[in-house]
Nucleic acid binder design. Structure first.
Lengths: 200, 200, 200, 200
DNA sequence: TATGAATGAGTGTTCATTCAT
DNA sequence: AATGAATGAACACTCATTCAT
């Protein structure tokens, strides 16, 4: 029953994760049936329980899988530069770019995961904090190097930055007729925050 | 059967709305039973259906009621000043203050309402846009008066500001042991945005 | 609580009985709400319980009231003649005539009352048997006078006659576009039964 | 989800139909719970919904299944003779015989199905008319061959015949202590109608 | 491994009935 | 007598999960 690396890497596991992402994004977690996911993944209902403990576990797995991928992609990009200001810009651009190229995943992460504070507290913590700490590290580094004002509290502001970026992403994902590009949104955010943070 | 102003103003209606807010905040909308709300409101299950069409309607009503109150409170405060920079500061402080004094309501608005993009699109639209437009009006006014940079796109940035404020509020509400005050959060946000927006 | 003659004769009692007859005829007993009847009768829901013990009692009362009226009308007509053959003809014509002029009542008696064999057995017995015995009396009288064959068993045949008449009535009541008159139906039934019963 | 021939022929489908027939006959459709049927059929509540769309569909299915069987049995018997008078006799005898050997089914068809004129009009139409048309065909054939009087209107009289037979059947089914045999009832009906119809 | 028929606990909603006014 | 707001028992139906094949 325990999920091992073999299962996680397997074909069916990925097929189900992707099907679930599409279904949850479209109908919402609570309005999606396990059998909907099974049909979308072209497997039998019971098969899902060979790879996931239950419906909740499916949601959690999407979350963990995606956050790992997001985090890895972001860390790779950030390594390209050593300037905190440039890093912050890269972070913002890449986050929105990832949202654009993984809209279903983004929607599940942003909309569905929040539906239960219980869930947020119990499961989502670690991976999410990991991601947030990327932001606070940039901030701390910037303050240390004198690029950002020392009056900034990275512990508080990291969340504000994340919220701003995430909300833009959410708006963009839910918008049917896209009124602006993720690129334009990224530019506005960069301007806003870099000006807002930089030392005089 | 139609809900009229009389019902909305009635004792029971308010009692049920408040009970539902508490219950939904604690357990989440989908994990709350109508009978939980009834018990909390000290009425019979059936009584709820005298005032609300169904469980969804209860959620929507909480949303509309609260947004109206929030919006009204904010507009009153903003009228106190004519300086856009001061207005923005007042807005941020008041929003976080309202979240602090109405934690259950804030949690339902932030967490539960988002669970369904369908809901977000279909019902939440108007009242929410009304609230967002308060922000963009401050921005536009500031740009016009030369306080804020003209390169700011209020249409995009309003959402970023809202996201930052809202996310801070969400973190604060969900935190069991409050690690910082809403006041401190407001100050950080003000510094960040006022610096980030102001013309050189 | 006991229903007395005063109540039965009262305005409201009749108003409710008539409203219930219309509502039950249109929607069926189980698909009609007490509040539907109340609205139709232009009284409050609770008022119905001042005149009737419960919803079932309403149905039973319609039945008893109507059967009394039907029976009385039929007995009056039968007294006009002393010839069993003529009596039978009069009975058939009058029954169908009454159905035509009291379609809602007829429909409730025919369709709704039958829905519960429990009801049929427990409540409907007496008044219904009274009505059936009118037929068997005609038959017995006819056999005695030599108009009808002695091989006829009135105990069995009364029910067959009633069934034939009642079924025609039912068809006619439920037919939206009336394809024949009750008069035509009555004539066919008379011909059928008088020929079928008469002694050679 | 769609009910196909496979499901209809399956063990469980038949088991449920038969259980529902017994339960509905005993307690009436509206007083029977789906869980009563499930218990009687020795399946879980949910299993019923794998074979039937809802409770109404269960009733309709009993009707259609039974009417098909009844009609087929009757047509087979009628083919045995070419004399309309004999055919009519055979029809009457067989109908009552079938009622005797399928009392539960007969009771559901006669009592429960009629409770809703909506049902009668919407669903029962076709199969029932098919059955009635068997009678009118006998009548028409008899008139053509000169056995029955030409003044008979088969369109009207078929319903009278059916009503008489059906009512006798109903009385007999609902009678706890059977006061006469179906055989005796059939004989009386034959005498009545054959005399009533035959040409001089 | 994979299936999908079967399960049965769980819940939103209805509506007959009551009773304070 | 009359009202109609409030009640809460009752029930059809859903769907996550299991397990025999």
């Amino acid at each position: 029953m325990a999920l091992n690396a073999q299962k996680i890497g397997s074909d069916k596991y990925q097929k189900i994760i992707q099907a679930a992402t599409r279904v949850f994004a479209e109908k919402g977690f609570y309005n999606s049936k396990v059998s909907d996911v099974a049909r979308e993944a072209q497997v039998a209902d019971g098969t899902i329980y060979l790879y996931f403990k239950n419906k909740d576990d499916l949601l959690i797995s999407i979350f963990e899988e995606s956050m790992d991928n997001f985090t890895a992609a972001v860390l790779t990009r950030l390594a390209e530069s050593s300037d905190p200001v440039e890093k912050l810009g890269n972070f913002i651009h890449l986050h929105l770019e990832l949202v654009r190229t993984h809209q279903d995943t983004a929607q599940v992460l942003q909309v569905e995961l929040r539906q239960s504070s219980k869930f947020m507290k119990e499961y989502a913590g670690t991976k999410f904090k990991e991601y947030l700490s990327i932001i606070s590290q940039i901030l701390e580094e910037g303050i240390e190097k004198g690029c950002f004002r020392a009056s900034i509290n990275p512990f508080i502001v990291k969340r504000a930055l994340f919220g701003a970026i995430d909300e833009m992403a959410l708006e963009w994902v839910l918008m049917k007729r896209k009124k602006y590009t993720t690129e334009a949104a990224a530019k506005q955010l960069c301007e806003l925050f870099i000006e807002g943070l930089k030392a005089e």
